[in-house]
């Protein structure tokens, strides 16, 4: 039902929302001087005004500046996690799919990793190595490697029977060439779909970790941290809580819409996708 309603949203909306946040995170700071850590003690907890468009928090820091800086953190966690997890996962999947005796072993290890909750792993990691961006990206990468490995592995096995792959073998292509020229290009659409969902999930997990205090440490303007801090002032200063929440919700919504539209496109072209598993990950 919800799915049908979502279908009606024009395809530009998802991309538009993501583009908006990219703009806020990277283009806006070029033109406007943003400082998420500067405090204006006199102005603390002041409502949205001409001077502070989104108001200020309990230390008198501009919410607009903090949300823009938070967008940067969220997008970078999402992007780095996705790129690293995709690179490692696709490699594992390709090796598993092509080297028969390694395939079973690699996939069992992958299954083991998949059974382990990513947030829990991140908490352990933070407990051992302290809070920080790298710890979070590392933990999330480990969490999402299996997703990419599984999809790649499955598609490689499926594509080995595909007409054009058998044709490539019969023509005389070497195995590396078959993988790089014939299998990988046909995997990319479904992997892109997967990547948008992994990116969205990584952003949610990072925010959740910030919220429970296991993510980035409080002065850093992570959206999760901001939601956590804003709770205390919910009754007197709604903007401190509401704007970070809206930011998280809109970015995730945008990414999911974008992924959905890409997956529609890909399906329309007749290729298989991992869209079903992707929805499972997000929900």
């Amino acid at each position: 039902m919800l799915k049908k309603r979502l279908r009606k949203i024009p395809s530009g909306v998802g991309a538009g929302i993501v583009a908006f946040w990219l703009f806020v995170a990277y283009i806006l700071p070029i033109f406007v001087d943003l400082d998420p850590l500067a405090t204006f003690p006199v102005e603390r907890l002041s409502p949205p005004s001409a001077e502070f468009l989104l108001g200020t928090d309990q230390f008198g820091r501009s919410m607009l500046d903090r949300i823009a800086a938070g967008a940067r953190i969220s997008l970078e966690v999402g992007a780095f996690t996705t790129i690293l997890a995709a690179a490692i996962g696709i490699t594992i999947g390709l090796i598993g799919g092509y080297v028969k005796y390694l395939g079973g072993l690699l996939m069992r290890v992958t299954d083991g990793l998949m059974a382990f909750p990513g947030a829990l792993f991140a908490i352990v990691l933070v407990a051992v190595f302290g809070q920080g961006f790298l710890q979070i990206v590392f933990a999330l990468t480990v969490t999402f490697v299996p997703t990419f490995a599984r999809i790649t592995y499955g598609e490689v096995l499926a594509l080995q029977g595909a007409g054009y792959v058998r044709n490539a073998v019969s023509v005389g292509c070497t195995t590396p060439r078959v993988i790089v020229r014939h299998i990988l290009p046909n995997l990319i659409p479904s992997l892109i779909v997967q990547a948008t969902f992994v990116c969205a999930t990584a952003i949610i997990v990072e925010a959740s970790l910030g919220f429970i205090g296991a993510g980035l440490a409080p002065p850093d303007p992570s959206w999760g941290v901001m939601v956590s801090e804003g709770q205390a002032f919910m009754r007197v200063a709604w903007w401190v809580l509401v704007f970070p929440c809206l930011a998280i919700a809109s970015l995730i919504f945008g990414l999911c819409l974008l992924g959905d539209k890409i997956s529609d496109r890909v399906e329309g072209r007749g290729a298989k996708t991992g869209a079903e598993t992707a929805e499972g990950v997000v929900s």
Binding site: G163, Y164, N167, S170, V171, T174, R181
Partner: peptide, 22 residues
């Protein structure tokens, strides 16, 4: 590989046997 050069195959279904990305 030397054999593959001399013996080529044409498959049944031309909708399946050509890589759509080339």
């Amino acid at each position: 590989r030397r054999l593959r050069r001399d013996v080529q195959m044409v498959f049944q279904d031309p909708f399946q046997s050509l890589n759509p990305r080339m």
